[in-house]
Structure formats: C-alpha cells, structure tokens
C-alpha cells in the first residue's frame, strides 16, 4: 500500500466531492466485473471474479461430516480466506494473516446468519443427510490473487458465483441395524444436485471519504477513508449483515442513509452479477 502525498489526497477528495473519481467513475459506480466459473476442476464449485485490478478465486468443497449437537438438522459451512504473496510481497508469511481473518469473519457474518441459523444466505438445512448423524460440510476457500481495493465485495460476489456452480453429490443412505449405528452413506460420483442460491446475498461496501460515500473503492481511495460500512443485501431487499470498519464515528442518520443507498446499489449489482453468471454458464456449455 503506497502512501499518498497531501496534494494527491486532496485531488482524490475533491474528485469524490465532485462525483468524478480518478478513473472517471461516479460515486456509486462499480468497476467492470468479469466472471469465470469452474476454474478449479477438482472442487465441487469454483469461480474467479475480477473487479478492476482486484482478482479473487473461490473454491467450494463438500465433505461428509457430523452435524453439531445444537443444530442436528443443519449442515455446516466454513469460510477461509487466504491472501497469497503473489498479490503483494507484504502478504508473505504472517503479513496477510490479519487481513485474511478480518475478511473471513466479515464474510461469515454476512452469509451465515444468526446463532439460531435463521436468516442465513445459505440454506443449511438442505445440507443435512441424516438428521443428527451425517451432514455435508461446505468448505469455502477464497484466494486473493491480486488486490486493488474492495476485496470484501469481490469475495462475496465470487462466493455467490461459486455457489451457483456448486454441485452436491447425490447420496443414498443405508441405515444401520440399530438407531445408534453410524449410517452407511453412499456418495454418488455421477449425479449432482445444484445448490439453491436464490437466498445468497451480495455485499456492498460504502466507503466514506469526506462528506460523501463511494462504492467499490480502489486501494488509493481506501487509504483516504474515514470509515467504511459493508452491508449485505439479498434479493428481497433485506439486510443480512453489516460490518463497520475504520475509526471515525458516524452519525446514526448517516448509517441509515447508507443502508438505503446500499439496497439500491445492491439491486443493481445483483442483476449485473446474474447476467454475468448466465453469460459465463452459457460460454462454459459451448466449450
């Protein structure tokens, strides 16, 4: 992350105030998104999303596991993000750990809902095979290949696309002789069930610079921010998660305003993402 001189900072700040950012975008405009699916053949689902110069890859693996005793009728989902040193030399070794854990936590908060499991973007009850005994564990691994700001939005979009691409293998269950036996689960190699992704939200990060907020900040603009709020919005316009970063305090009315802006922008993002996914799937079928 290169530092900026006072003159450059002033220029960026002025641009945001005048609704003309350094790359010509308006404040509420996303960079061009490009989407690829099925980039990791050995995973159950995978995707690669490019948002300007930010490049992330997400891979989803499903493995058999045991449901937790608190929620015997639900599967489990775990999200891990890794910032690789190919993105920036400072991510070598432990350099990227703080950023990775921050991103993982924010994504978990937005996608997995409350403690009771309600409101989760991913329907966990569709992952259970035998209640209380066997369920699917979904491991969502994100890799940051190149970083130019707004990693959270890019990762959330990539997770959504990867889930659209995910196929859960069909299982046939042979229950054991007594109810305490571990059931024998036969995992099919051929048939796959498409995952239901209608409830998966997208994340819109609003970065406050001066008096205005911008969407999809580049790393230069992020270095200028006073605070940032990431809001997760689903298809029905409901808020599924909210995270605030940055030290500056925000007026409560500002936060409410940000939420309504995020809903509006989230709708547009969702529809552009849907069309990108459709295009990617169509081109994948052609090949």
């Amino acid at each position: 992350m290169v530092g900026l001189s006072a003159g450059e900072k002033h220029f960026i700040y002025g641009g945001i105030a005048q609704d003309l950012r350094t790359d010509g975008r308006q404040r509420l405009h996303y960079r061009p998104i490009s989407v690829e699916i099925g980039v990791i053949p050995q995973a159950n689902g995978s995707s690669r999303v490019r948002l300007g110069a930010t490049d992330v890859i997400v891979s989803i693996k499903a493995e058999l596991g045991r449901p937790s005793s608190l929620h015997p009728d639900k599967g489990k989902v775990a999200i891990f993000i890794d910032c690789s040193p190919t993105a920036a030399p400072m991510f070598e070794g432990r350099g990227g750990e703080e950023l990775s854990s921050e991103l993982s936590l924010a994504l978990q908060r937005c996608l997995l809902g409350g403690r009771s499991g309600a409101g989760a973007g991913i329907d966990l009850s569709s992952l259970v095979i035998v209640e209380g005994k066997v369920c699917w564990d979904l491991y969502i691994d994100g890799l940051v290949v190149s970083s130019d700001g707004n990693l959270l939005d890019a990762l959330a979009a990539a997770i959504k696309v990867a889930l659209c691409n995910t196929g859960i293998p069909k299982t046939t269950v042979n229950l054991g002789a007594s109810p305490n036996d571990q059931p024998d689960v036969d995992v099919s190699d051929e048939e796959f069930l498409q995952f239901d992704t209608s409830g998966v939200p997208v994340i819109v990060t609003l970065t406050k610079v001066g008096r205005h907020y911008i969407v999809d900040a580049t790393s230069e603009e992020e270095s200028q921010m006073s605070s940032a709020v990431s809001i997760s919005v689903n298809r029905h316009g409901q808020i599924c998660g909210l995270t605030k970063r940055g030290g500056a305090g925000l007026d409560p009315s500002v936060i409410l305003d940000m939420i309504s802006v995020a809903k509006h922008v989230g709708e547009q993002l969702m529809s552009s993402l849907d069309s990108e996914i459709a295009a990617a799937e169509a081109s994948a079928e052609d090949q």
């Binding site: 006072a6 002033h10 700040y13 641009g15 105030a17 005048q18 003309l20 001066g210």
Partner: peptide, 20 residues
C-alpha cells in the same frame, strides 16, 4: 468536516472541467 486534508488557506478544489 474533514480533518485529514491540510488546511492551507489557498488550497481549493480543482474545478470540474479541468478535472474531467
């Protein structure tokens, strides 16, 4: 509103036309 920008009296924002 902003504490981060240097508060020099003669500094002002680039006009929109030149910015474009």
């Amino acid at each position: 509103c902003v504490g981060q920008v240097t508060q020099e009296v003669h500094e002002r924002i680039t006009p929109l036309e030149i910015r474009t």
